[in-house]
Each structure stands twice: as C-alpha cells, then as structure tokens.
Simulated scan of single mutants.
Amino acid sequence: MQVAVLFGGASQEHDVSVVSAQQLMDAADVRKISITPVYTDFENRFFSSPTLRDIRQFKPKPANAGEVFFRWSANGPVMQEMTSGRQKPIDCILPVFHGPFGEDGRLQGHFELLGIPVTGFAAGSSAMAMRKDATKALVKLAGVNVLDHVTANRASLADSATLVREVTDRIGFPAIVKPANLGSSIGVGLAKTPDELAALVAYVLAQDNLALIEPQVQHLVEYNIAMRWSAGEVHLSAIERPKSSAELLDFREKYLSSGGAVKGAFLPSEGMLSLTRDINPQLPDDLQSRIHDYARKAFVTLGHRGTPRIDFMANARTGELWFNEINAIPGSYGFFLWEAAPQPLLFPELINHLVTEALGDTVKRFDDPVPQGAYLLPR
C-alpha cells in the first residue's frame, strides 16, 4: 500500500507534528506499507523528498524538498511533482497533524473532495472534535458528564465586566481559561481573580477566536484513553494517568522535559513518552467503568473512526469524573496506550488498522450524482 504521511503545517504544534510523524514512519511495517513523507510548510503547501526522513533536516523547515500536489489521474490517485510533472501512485493519506490546518477537518475535507482515502475522523467529525465547546455539548447529550463553561470572543473584551459577572455567577474562581480550538494545553492559564481573567482571555484570543472558561477541578487527576472501531464494536486502549507537579500540565512540560535530562534538552524520538505517567493504574471498579462507558459513548457520538484519545478530569477525593476533550490525532498516535491495551496492538498494527479502515470505507464516485427527477440541465 502506497501511503503518504503528511505532517508539519501552519499550527502552533508544527514541531510536535514533525516528531510524531517520524515516530510513525519509523514504526510502519515495510512489508505492507510503503511510506512517502510529505511535509506541509507554514503556508500549507506540500513538499516531498526522501530527506524528510532525517529529523536533522528540520530547522524547523527542511531544505531540498520539491513541491507536490495530489490529484485523481486516469490511473487513480497520485502525488505529482510541480516542476517535473512526475507522478507517484498513492493509495491513502495518513495525516499526523496536531491543531489547526491538519487535525481540524480542513485537510480531511480537501482529500475527501479529491476522493483520496484519508485515515482517521472524517472532515465533519474532525472539525467538531477540534471545537471544545461544541464537542462538550454533543457528548453531554449522549450522557457523558462535562463541566459547565463560559465562552468569550473578541467582542467580550469590550465588555469585560459582563464577562466577569457571568464567570463569577456560573463558574467562580479560580477558573481555567483555554483556547477552544487548539490542543496540547497551548495557551491554557489559571485565573484566580477577575483581573487575571481579563488578561488571560485577551492572551487566549490573540491565538484563537474563541476562549473557553471552566471551573478549576480541585484535587485534579487526569485520565486518558484511546479508542478504535473494529468488527462492529469499540475497542479501548489502556488508561494512562499523567503525572505533574504543576498546577497545570502545560505544553512545555508535556513535550520539552526528557526524563532525567536538563529541562529543554529535547530528544525528538521521545515525543510524548518524555512525560512521566502511570499506564493502567489501579482504579476503583466504578471509576474505571465510568471512564470506559464515557469513552464508548463519546467515540460513537463523534465519529467512531481512527484512533482518537479522550482526556478526562477527575476529583481524586470525590471521585467525580468529567469529559475534557477529544484528540482526533493524539501525539505519537498514542501507540504506547495500545501496546498496553487489554487486547495489545503494536504500533505497526495500529498503522495498518488506520490505513485498512480508510481504504475500506472510501469510495470515489464517477457517475452522475443527480437523480433523474432533479434534472434541470440536459443530459
């Protein structure tokens, strides 16, 4: 199978995407999959070259890669070089993006228009998963517990007093402020006072067009779990419990700490594994059952495709559990969660699942889609 792995992009998580993609390409089963690396630059243009397999070429943009585009040819989907016109057959697109312009449905929609199979959530589901407030509304209807929240846009900055009153009445302080459309804890802050709230909302809205404000969970413990759809049912990964000494698990702690090394001495091959965590921690039966139940309900509601990861928040003392967000393309595709799952799945097997799923339910139509009764133009 000829698989184009796309990564990079005009996202705050560009660098993380490059690292995750290298991990995935290293893990692909070469007996079944032939990988073509495709880098997406800050202008969302596509480039390809064998040199993209060398992480040392990224500073942060790689050199010596030619621009390419994708289209449907007489022989099926191809990747075509802009300058030479040379074509390479492509069976499937495997995106390894985090954040806007890759994880949010825009890229998925591009390839759906072309008719080229693309792994993971469809465009509509990807867009919904990226919008945290909309996602919460949907899973709440499915019976999943969520925190109350307030949203703020740039118009809210002109009347911060009204926003402060709404947050005070509905949520109280301290409150968490975060972008509604970004991931990896980028831009997340803790507002302990009304003055801090206004400043944090302004900071978030400089990065996103919508801010999400939620109550701070006391005695916070996080639990993450990934899901996939196979043989007509939901399969669940291991549960992870991230460890953190900070009030917030922020972006730098997630990606820039490397075990016992000096802070910021980033080892790209480690990726998300640089974060200390408990895999399959001992949990009360009731809590584990609720995590599994909420995960199944949310996954089916949001798209039951790909291998997304859902993040939950819990109060360690009361046992309360809330859905936090869903990551349509989790860092490193959460392969370590699947390797420790009740039904273990190695990283190469996980990649094969993604590609096989995409190829199995993507069909390009060539016939006239207009029913005869709707003809307004001559045929």
Rank of each mutant, 00 (worst) to 15 (best):
K88M: 13
Q23A: 15
T83P: 01
N75T: 13
A63K: 14
L94C: 11
R53E: 06
S20K: 13
G102E: 14
Q12D: 11
S20C: 09
F58D: 03
W72R: 12
N75I: 11
A28P: 04
L24H: 01
A10I: 02
D41N: 15
L114I: 09
R106N: 10
V3W: 00
V16S: 05
L113N: 08
D26H: 13
E112L: 07
A4Y: 02
F7R: 00
F111P: 03
C92A: 11
P60K: 10
V19K: 12
T83H: 12
M82A: 14
R71A: 08
D15I: 13
R45Q: 11
R53M: 12
D15S: 13
G102Q: 06
F46T: 00
T36M: 10
P37S: 09
C92G: 06
D15E: 15
L113K: 12
S73E: 08
S20G: 14
I116L: 14
A21T: 04
G9C: 08
D41H: 07
Q12K: 07
D15C: 13
M82W: 14
Q87T: 15
E43K: 10
L6H: 00
E43F: 09
A28C: 15
H14T: 07
A27E: 12
L114E: 01
V18F: 08
V16P: 02
A74V: 13
S11E: 03
F7L: 03
P50W: 02
Q22R: 10
D104G: 07
V68E: 03
G109K: 05
P77W: 04
V96E: 01
